[in-house]
Simulated scan of single mutants.
Amino acid sequence: MRPKIYLFGDSITEESFSDGGWGAALANHFSRTADVVLRGFSGYNTRWAMKVLERVFPAEMNVGGGRAPLAVTVFFGANDACLPDRYSAFQHVPIDEYRQNLHAIVAYLKNRWPSTHVILITPPPIDEAARLLHPYGENPSNLPERTNETAGNYAKACVAVAGECGVPVVDLWTRMQQFREWDKAYLRDGLHLTSGGNKLVFEEVIGKLKEVGLSLETLPADLPFIDGIDPDNPLKAFEE
């Protein structure tokens, strides 16, 4: 069985297998070395993620000598950071609880599979003006349900948890804002990713995977490549 890389997160993960998505790009990149498995849940926060952990990663995954995943990306925080006095308040999770939940998710995964690399990804920055143009539903206050400042606080909390747990982190909130006109280049509705935003996430995740030793150079390919098959004796390649 090929080893697996799991993507666990909210809508930005759920959409990652769409055309040009960062998850689809990972699947293409590792097409002969690992299966990339999507476990994204639109609208979810870390509180809800805690409730579904055992369904997403059931005990049966360990039955029959099942292999530990190579890596799991954990990409939550955009919904936790919804403001408690705005129309998406039901998604809000206080920042202290957000930190605790991230700690618990990392601990759950590392206790299950000590060899698995857990990579945290911070929420992205928020384009507040664009959020007003793309509300989820009725917005009587005419105020954005998220602010970039609050998203940044949750991103800093995510980075801090990664340091405390000793796991890699993609600080997407900081990285994205290092580019000019990031709000239009990387976000299509002030929150979700454009093709450019997906490319950026893909590159950042690939970089973190390489840092922990997971790359095309280090992972064995599944079955012989065509250039390794002898035209005069093709079946020999399958006898090894």
Rank of each mutant, 00 (worst) to 15 (best):
V37Y: 09
W48F: 14
L26G: 07
D35S: 12
R32P: 01
V37Q: 10
L172A: 13
I105C: 00
T33Q: 14
H103E: 14
R131H: 06
F90D: 04
A49V: 14
A24M: 09
G213Y: 09
P3W: 03
G21K: 05
D222V: 15
R32V: 11
N233W: 01
N111E: 07
E204R: 07
N62K: 01
S16I: 08
G65Q: 02
Y87S: 11
T13D: 00
I121L: 12
G40V: 14
A78M: 11
S18L: 13
S16D: 05
A107Q: 15
R112M: 02
M1V: 02
Y44F: 15
G197W: 12
R86P: 14
Q91T: 03
L38M: 15
L216S: 07
V106L: 04
E128A: 13
Q100Y: 04
Y108H: 10
T46S: 04
P168T: 08
V93I: 07
P168E: 13
Y98C: 09
F8G: 08
P123I: 00
A34L: 09
S195N: 14
A157Y: 02
L209P: 05
R175Q: 11
W173M: 07
G43W: 11
T116K: 01
P144K: 04
P84D: 04
Y6H: 05
N198G: 13
V159H: 00
L200H: 05
G197A: 15
D80V: 14
H29G: 10
